[in-house]
Design a protein around this nucleic acid. Structure first.
Lengths: 187, 187
DNA sequence: TTCTTGTCACCTAGGTGTTAATAT
DNA sequence: ATATTAACACCTAGGTGACAAGAA
């Protein structure tokens, strides 16, 4: 089972149609975490969690952050570190999480069925933009991202926005499934 | 073959008897890099390079940095991230690099001989201290560590000290050996 | 006396939205 | 017009030795 961390915050953005900035060098899409597992895979627009491959126990131990993931519109972006995801500006995207059971050596065995579980959180849909289109989204980012604190009106109101609704189940999204502590997974 | 990066700089310190600060939270020992491989292993006072295990090709591709390694005198240091190395103050240490050929699944096979290669660079000997004992060492640190730039007398003299003597062979230290690009190693 | 710890000013390094300039 | 880029001020986060206070 996979829960979306900070689901209430995601929803807050989602009501206004979430936007994510993309730049040449890549901007972080790091406000929020998932749990207990995360990875995208196969070809373009796919990001593999840096902890992959790892045991089920590892993925279930704590929240899983995709904080290193960067969004870019630069097709020739140097992806040496594998943290870049190339998107097209003004297009809408739906992040998906694939949990892939892999062999001991990390290789993928596609002959066996049911070794890939895909999770989708509609709250995380977003439009890739080079500049914000909706001022409501801009204000929400300023209010909740610590790095934008300089643009907040009131410094007094300390609001981290990081502990909201953690581990809230996202009903309907997570098919009942089991992650085995001893088995190895990539995400 | 393993080369010590910035060997001239290491020697500069070594002539004055290198000292490394240890603290409760752990201080970085990150001035310099090695190449092409790095890892310590087995029990205490051992640090495994975060890239481990990985292929010979990976280790040989570029310089290998131990910048994440932290030295501490705190025996109960939270080593969740595995970056802490516990040392005893005012004791002398000689860093050693162990390159261990491992199996596909990352496990170590000690039954076969010659799967462990150990490299020693005498230039990297140091004394662990909680405060510098030798003012010459203090000044060298200030001169060559960017984070201590605030204590330099002249801001004009920009001296990074980072490009000295890279890849200089360290004769006598590296037994002739071969790292196979396809095989997997931990360091 | 000697060694260790905590706090500090001063840096590096890099993530924000803003804004003006540029490209399409 | 509209979309993208680059430079900027403002932050977070954390690595330095200096220094004073504390511990052994």
């Amino acid at each position: 089972q996979v829960y979306l961390c900070n689901r209430a915050l995601w929803l807050k953005f989602h009501r206004h149609q979430t936007e994510m900035i993309i730049t040449k060098q890549g901007r972080n899409k790091c406000l929020f975490d998932n749990r207990p597992d995360n990875t995208n895979r196969t070809r373009n627009r796919v990001y593999m969690h840096p902890d992959s491959p790892n045991t089920g126990a590892h993925w279930m131990r704590q929240e899983i952050s995709f904080g290193k993931l960067k969004l870019t519109n630069n097709k020739g972006a140097s992806n040496n570190t594998g943290q870049m995801v190339v998107l097209q500006s003004l297009h809408k995207y739906q992040p998906r999480l694939h949990v892939v059971e892999v062999n001991e050596d990390g290789s993928e065995d596609s002959s066996q069925p049911g070794r890939v579980q895909t999770f989708t959180f509609p709250e995380t849909q977003f439009i890739a933009v080079t500049a914000y289109q909706n001022t409501d989204i801009t204000q929400l980012k300023i209010d909740h991202n610590p790095f934008a604190k300089g643009f907040r009106d009131n410094y007094d109101t300390i609001y981290t926005g990081c502990d909201i609704d953690r581990l809230t189940p996202s009903p309907g999204d997570s098919p009942l499934s089991q992650i085995v502590p001893g088995a190895r997974y990539a995400m």
